[in-house]
Design a protein around this nucleic acid. Structure first.
Length: 217
DNA sequence: GGCCAGGACACCA
DNA sequence: TGGTGTCATGGC
């Protein structure tokens, strides 16, 4: 089953307005947040980011050389701190070899950038796509848990895995990076607001969304 | 006190 | 390829 994303994106955007995602001040905070938020409430992530900012001012050169024990202490509120600290240290030390020039990194790996990110232990499908969209300004769909719930609900077919949903969703050829960023933000914010409670869903604006035209096969 | 949150990974069949 | 246990914390 293939699904065109444009109608849902248009509906979400018109009803909710631009979300301005990702919530961060710079690329380094996005990288940190993307790793820290894995299976974790954002409130806990915010605590960790605050402590990291106090220690490093979120400067990548400082993050890259943080002693592991210190890094783990700062991010402890986000849980899974041993795995996450390793991922953070690995990716920042890798970026350091390119002097934190993101354009250089992108140019160096080209179409293999996603695979390169996946070689980092602690960075999987979702985090890799988040980094591609919000840090490296590429256009791809982030098929996270909220998206899986939303598409399952709308299209009446269970989407229970990241890769399954990802390969089913077709972004328009004209989709921009800004739109890809916005799409993920809209899906997450919608999920936070409505997806949890059945009653809220029933009364929500998506009840009048007709998914049929966007189903290709 | 149990459940969950914007996953990833090793292990298994 | 797909299912299960594990990793850890804090809020509700």
């Amino acid at each position: 089953m293939k699904i065109q994303a444009q109608p849902l994106f248009t509906k979400l955007l018109s009803e909710m307005g631009p979300q301005g995602w990702w919530p961060a001040r710079n690329h380094w905070e996005i990288i940190l947040g993307a790793i820290l938020v894995q299976n974790t409430n954002w409130r806990n992530v915010a605590r960790s980011l605050n402590q990291l900012e106090l220690a490093t001012n979120l400067e990548p050169q400082k993050i890259a050389v943080l002693p592991l024990a210190d890094l783990q202490a700062y991010i402890r509120p986000s849980g899974f701190y041993i795995n996450k600290s390793r991922a953070i240290q690995t990716i920042f030390q890798w970026l350091a070899t390119y002097d934190f020039a993101l354009e250089t990194v992108k140019a160096a790996y080209g179409s293999q950038l996603r695979n390169q990110l996946l070689t980092i232990r602690g960075i999987g499908d979702e985090t890799a796509d988040v980094l591609l969209v919000y840090v490296f300004k590429e256009v791809t769909f982030i098929a996270d848990k909220y998206a899986q719930k939303l598409f399952t609900r709308i299209y009446g077919q269970p989407f229970t895995s990241y890769r399954q949903l990802k390969k089913s969703v077709l972004l328009p050829a004209t989709f921009t990076n800004e739109q890809a960023q916005e799409f993920h933000g809209l899906i997450v914010e919608f999920g936070k607001c409505y997806l949890k409670k059945e009653a809220a869903w029933q009364s929500s604006f998506l009840t009048d969304f007709d998914p049929t035209p966007s189903i290709l096969s």
